[in-house]
Design a protein around this nucleic acid. Structure first.
Length: 225
DNA sequence: CGGAAGATTCAT
DNA sequence: TGAATCTTCCGC
């Protein structure tokens, strides 16, 4: 066993049991692999967002799927760290999270974008609309599609075959942060600036504010790359 | 049980 | 800028 300075030698699952907001920048540069019948695809994460659970009733996260408590869909978020939470949205897209925090709490990291570092051919086959290599996993639904993930994978362990997660030995730099993409209401504001990305990386998704529902976004607050 | 909204993407 | 498309969850 080689000791990873980033985790201070902790087992990966224990490391992921920490605070999602602190883990988020450290997971930039990590490589997630999914090995399927068609082959393996690996993505190097360049953009993630932290979402918290309702356990802190004084400071709940209004942008999180777990804001109003557990449901059948979000159940994996309450489970062990290192598992996947994959959900179906807009009638056609899947998005992938890695669960964080101790079991019983409901935090996770939404995998918003990355660079395909292995299995590019298979990823291109799954993402025929992609025009350039940088577009293969540029956006959460694109990333899930490139990896071949569906709701059938929700709740499965990302740290065991057919999946795998490898952290970088040192934190990615430089890292930027800002409001989360597409989150309406207070959860999408500076108050919850829990989107983290590798500054200047070409695979980072384009910033898009949510349609203002309730709270209106501040035009002075633009955090593009 | 009806309906609005959605952690999005792609084409127009 | 809007359509696609359907599941989830809130509210009546």
């Amino acid at each position: 066993m080689s000791r990873n300075p980033l985790t201070a030698g902790q087992p990966l699952r224990e490391f992921l049991s920490g605070d999602a907001r602190q883990l988020a920048p450290l997971l930039l540069g990590a490589v997630l692999t999914h090995d399927s019948r068609d082959g393996a695809v690996s993505v190097r994460l360049t953009e993630v967002e932290a979402y918290l659970g309702p356990e802190d009733s004084l400071h709940p996260d209004p942008g999180s799927h777990t804001y109003r408590g557990p449901t059948p869909r979000n159940a994996p978020m309450f489970g062990p760290a290192g598992h996947l939470y994959v959900y179906f949205t807009y009638g056609m897209h899947h998005c992938t999270n890695i669960v964080c925090g101790p079991e019983g709490t409901a935090s996770a990291l939404l995998l918003r974008a990355g660079e395909i570092v292995d299995g590019v051919e298979l990823a291109r086959h799954r993402r025929t609309t992609s025009k350039s290599p940088a577009d293969l996993a540029r956006g959460p639904a694109r990333l899930a599609k490139a990896l071949g993930l569906t709701t059938a994978d929700s709740g499965r362990d990302a740290l065991a075959p057919p999946f795998g997660l490898v952290l970088p030995s040192r934190p990615a730099v430089p890292v930027s942060s800002g409001p989360r993409v597409g989150v309406s209401g207070a959860g999408g504001t500076d108050r919850y600036a829990w989107r983290f990305w590798i500054t200047g990386d070409p695979t980072v998704s384009q910033y898009k504010p949510a349609k203002p529902r309730g709270a209106k976004p501040d035009p002075a607050t633009f955090h593009g790359r």
